[in-house]
Structures are given as structure tokens and as C-alpha cells.
Design a binder for these strands. Structure first.
Lengths: 337, 337
DNA sequence: TTGAAAGCGCTAACAG
DNA sequence: CTGTTAGCGCTTTCAA
């Protein structure tokens, strides 16, 4: 029964168990060299006093805190916030404690990482962050393993887990051709991002190898209104098959096509999105989309992080997760299948 | 220039500044009794070595870690993940470090809180958590301030920041009556939650005082498919004005009304949602919704947390934030306004 | 105004 | 198998 305020320390447990702090520490750590009898006594005492070890004190002695820093950008993006949720769940299961900092556009990434490392995190995971040399430098200098998840770009000297955007783009090309598309368009996210470029690249390459080409393209930032405007421009060109670099762009384009251009989907226009957001499955959109298999990516990210913590001089790995296309009504051509 | 791996300690800074660790500590803390000259020397040395204090070590001596535990449930709910984002941003600005744990339905809340308190967090914020006596007991026993944000229920002996659901329901009633509704329905979230009940209560009360009543009701869990099914049942009763306890329910109901019942919105049916999700503003839905002013709630939550940390024996406060109704096309009656 | 020394709670090396 | 001791990096008396 922990009484108000003060936490129970090893010392108190030791006193109750007629033993010493070190014995308590060992018994709780499962040290083999403790006799069954004393172990029992210690465990009983600990339970009775509701002893919870002070992890902060422990980590001052050990090298490791069990805390992993997570740097996130752009949590307004539903897809990113879902990724964070998966990471948090996975880390919780693995006994890691996520210390989460947002690094919004105007923050200096370096300052954020400095705060993180001040807390002696065991590693840093950067989520959907634009590649930032300063992060890499600081983590390198402080010897903290760094893992980039779904981040926009990075050399192979840094641990990276990302979806295979190029393969995803290729899948979409094959699918749209199979569905009878003739005039193809690409609707990209922010052009500077490697992810959007890779999706476009895979798309165009594969279209080419199938004897088609992508005549139209435009791009927009991640915001419905902007996307809507850009979509209008794209639709002027009268494409009949559009690949959108993410679901939000696809939703905006579908709304624009139906409400503003009076076109029916999939009758007049085939649309494919990316990320397989929950909303894609809603009947109003029923959007064919590429699923990045985020659960797998999150699991790999955590596994990589764990491996780097266990062996800091391990070679960095770059992992790629193959996405899969989820066909829905936005590309279902009545005559086919 | 911090070299590989090892962090710089006060000792090294002291050596470079021809001084002692204690002086370094004081200079960096801005202690008044340090001469201008030595302060300069110390700061210069610290900067030169890129000294970052070890916050873990510091907090072992001090009472406080600067870490605040955040317990979240149900991050799949877009509204909750957005709330978390706002909290993270606000805490970052305030110099708090959020240690985030998910407490999913099958986890024991107690275990999660125990892990949190093992890290000596300065306070715990429970976000959208079902009220759980165990959390309260453990936080109480360990003397950690607890703040519930938008949580489902709680006695007034606990710090709470929540939207005024009853007032929100009342606003909706007034609005729907003003828009000419005649046959009212309420579409609730999980019935056990106080929040949904309060929204309904405010709605029905105010309808009553305006000479109307709410004849129909149903409820659903937070999942599109379930909501869609429940909505179908509700629409059988042919209401012409529905208040949905959250936006997701409203979207499902709108889809159901249009696609399955062939009813037009707002022509045949007025719909109001709650939370003012980003999607509510999309043209396909263009949904009138109640905005909870989450930024304000997040700010108040952090302010309360800060106040409790600064003065742990402060009386708990219960705060309520007045929402505001955002009218959109789903309740725009052509003849009016 | 500054330095030396003690101690936060824990664990690990070193006796016994 | 177990207890004593030292020390993680910092802050803070206490002395000078």
C-alpha cells in the first residue's frame, strides 16, 4: 500500500524482507544466484509495498533509459497520425517508452533532437520527416541510433524503413491499363518529395512498357482546397484514368470530377489513390487505393530500432515494404470481370 | 564539438572554464550570485563543447523530470488523434516532454499508469479515456497530478477539461428548429458514454422547451459499417432532422440517406454532426457540425497540468469549454436566410 | 563569489 | 549466496 506521495525504494523493500538493497535489485532482476527462499521473501515484500522501481535512477547507472524519441512532422495528415498510432502501440508492446516531439515546419530540427537526447533516449525514430542533415549529424555525434520511417529521402548510411513507392506506382499503371484506361494523368503531392516522385516514376515507367504514356500531370500540397483547385486544372485535359499520389488528393479530385465536371466514376473516369485510408472504403468514394501495409512497416521500424540499440555498431539497413493494391469501385469497369 | 558517443558533462565544462561543476551548474541555471566574468567563461565553454545537460541525472536530484505522461485510448478515432496532436504541440511549446502510452481496450489501465509513474512523470494526462477508478487511485497513491481531458466521466475531485456537451446539444436543437425541422432524431455514440448522453440530454431538453420532441433514437459504436447499419434503422422512421453525436456517424447517415434511401440533404433531411472534423468541410458532405474548440481545450489542459505541477496541493478544477456550431450546407434550407 | 562534498535511487564490482 | 561500497551526472547545502 504505497502511501501518499513518496515512492517506495529498494531500501524499504530490503528492510521488510530482512535483506539488502542489492539483493532486492538482483531478486527483481531475476538473478540466478539468489536462493529460492530469499527471492520469495523479496518478491512478497515488493508486492506488499507495491514497489515500482525508479526507472530514472536505474537508467543513470545503466546506459539505457528504455525511452525512444519520436520526431513527427505534419500530424495533421491523417496518414501520418495513423502511423504514429501504430508506432506507439508497437513500442508499448515492446516495452519501449515513446517520447514524442513534433517538429513543425518552422521549428529547427536540431533543437528538437537536442531536447530528445538530453533525455538520454536510447534511439530516435523520425517519422515522415523531410530528410534533414542536422538530425543525422546530431544523432551521429551523440551516438544515438537513428531510424527514418517513411521519410522523404536519405542516403543508405542511415537506417530507413519505407514503402516501395516505385513498385506501388507500377502496380497502379498495370491496374489502370487492365481496366481500359487510355488517357493517363498523374496527380502528385508536394513535388519536392522523393516519395511522390518515385510513385510517378514507377507509374510512368510501367505505362511506357505497356505501350502507353502519361500525358498529364499536376501537383498540390496536402490540403483539400488546394487539391480541389489543382484537380480542376488537371481534369480540363480530359484524362480517363488518374493516379493520385495520396488518398486526399483522390477524394478532392473525385469531388471535383463529379460535382464540377459532371463526370461519373468509374464510368467516365478511373481513379486510384494511395495509402488506403479508412475513408477510401466509404461508399461515397469507394476508392481503389494502394495499401502501404503500415503495420508491417511499423513492426520493421521497431525491430530495426531494437537491433540498433542492442548493437550500436551494427551496419545501417535500408528496408522496403512492398505495398498492395486494393481494388474498389472507382476502377471497376462494368463490362469487365 | 561533441565527439562520438560520449556526452559532455559538467566536469568537462568546468575544466575548460577553469572552474568547478557546481559553478557551472549555477551559471547555467542563471544563479544571481555568480560574477559576470565567470558566467561568461562558463557559457562560452559550454557552447564550445556543445554541452547539453543530462536531464535524467538532473531529475534524480530535483523532484521533477519535465516529463508528462499521456494516456490515450482509441487513437483510431480521428478526433482523438487530432486532440493528441494538439496536446503534443502545446506541450512542446511549454517545455514539457510527453511520454505517450496507448491503453487499448484489453490493456489494464493500472499497468500503463504504473509504467508511466516508474518514469517519474510530473503529471499524467488521460485523453479521451473511459473514466477508470484504478487510474485515479494509482495517481493519487503516487501523488501524481492527474488531468482528464475530454474523458467520459469523472467526479469533481479530479481535474477535468471537457467540452460542454449539453450546451452543444442545445445549440443543435435550436439550429434544427430554426431550420424548420419537424421530426427529430438523435443518433448517438456508444450509449455508455456520458458525452453522448449529455449531448442527447441537451438536445432533448431544448427541443422540449421549444415545443418539440425527439421521437427517434438509435446508437452505434465508432465504426463506419456499424454506423451505416444503425443509420438505416433510424431512417426507416422518416425523421427530417437528425443530430448525430459525432461526424463519423453523420457521414455514415448521409451516405445511407442518399445512396440507400434516395433522400436529398438538406432538401429532405437536415443533418448535424459533432466535432467539426476536417472532412465535414468537404463539399460531398458539407456538414453542419459542432466545433469543440479543441485548441482551447488543449491549452487549458496544459495550463491545468502546469498549475498542478507547480502546486500539487491545489484544489482540482473542472473546466468546461463552450463549443460553437458551424453551419454548413447540410442544414441550409433554400427558402430561409 | 566560489569550491568541496554529499546524496538523489539504483546496480555492479568486490568482498565475504 | 548475500551484504558492503562506490558511483552514474547533477544540484545543493555547507564552508571558505
Amino acid at each position: 500500500m504505497a502511501d501518499d506521495g513518496k515512492r517506495v525504494r529498494t531500501f524499504e523493500v530490503a528492510a521488510l524482507a530482512n535483506s539488502s538493497p542489492s539483493t532486492v535489485s538482483r531478486a527483481l532482476a531475476g538473478d540466478k544466484r539468489i536462493s529460492e527462499a530469499t527471492r520469495e521473501r523479496v518478491l512478497a515484500a515488493a508486492r506488499e509495498l507495491n514497489y515500482q522501481p525508479n526507472l530514472i535512477a536505474r537508467s543513470l547507472k545503466n546506459a539505457s533509459t528504455g525511452i525512444v524519441g519520436v520526431v513527427v512532422t505534419d500530424l495533421d495528415n491523417l496518414y501520418h497520425s495513423h502511423t504514429l498510432k501504430l508506432l506507439i502501440d508497437e513500442m508499448g508492446d515492446q516495452g519501449m517508452a515513446p517520447l514524442v516531439f513534433a517538429c513543425n515546419r518552422n521549428d529547427r530540427a536540431g533543437a528538437v533532437i537536442d531536447r530528445l537526447t538530453s533525455y538520454q533516449v536510447d534511439a530516435v525514430i523520425a517519422l515522415a520527416a523531410p530528410f534533414d542533415a542536422e538530425i543525422v549529424r546530431i544523432c551521429g555525434a551523440s551516438g544515438k541510433p537513428l531510424v527514418l520511417m517513411n521519410s522523404y529521402e536519405g542516403p543508405t548510411t542511415i537506417n530507413t524503413v519505407a514503402g516501395d513507392s516505385r513498385a506501388g506506382g507500377a502496380m497502379v499503371a498495370e491496374h489502370l491499363v487492365a481496366c481500359g484506361g487510355q488517357h493517363f494523368a498523374f496527380f502528385g503531392g508536394e513535388d519536392s518529395t522523393r516519395i511522390s516522385r518515385d510513385r510517378e516514376l514507377g507509374f510512368c515507367e510501367t505505362l511506357g512498357s505497356l505501350g502507353h504514356r502519361c500525358d498529364l500531370r499536376t501537383s498540390s500540397i496536402y490540403a483539400y482546397d488546394d487539391a480541389r483547385r489543382a484537380a480542376a486544372g488537371l481534369l480540363e485535359g480530359r484524362p480517363d484514368a488518374v493516379f493520385c499520389a495520396n488518398d486526399l488528393l483522390a477524394f478532392a479530385l473525385m469531388d471535383c470530377a463529379r460535382l464540377q465536371f459532371g463526370r461519373s466514376i468509374p464510368g467516365d473516369l478511373l481513379v486510384v489513390g494511395y495509402d488506403n485510408t479508412a475513408i477510401a472504403a466509404w461508399p461515397s468514394y469507394d476508392l481503389t487505393s494502394v495499401d502501404q501495409c503500415l503495420e508491417i512497416m511499423a513492426a520493421k521500424t521497431i525491430a530495426t530500432t531494437r537491433a540498433m540499440i542492442d548493437d550500436p555498431k551494427r551496419e545501417p539497413t535500408v528496408m522496403t515494404v512492398l505495398p498492395r493494391l486494393i481494388p474498389r469501385n472507382s476502377t471497376t469497369v462494368p463490362g469487365r470481370l
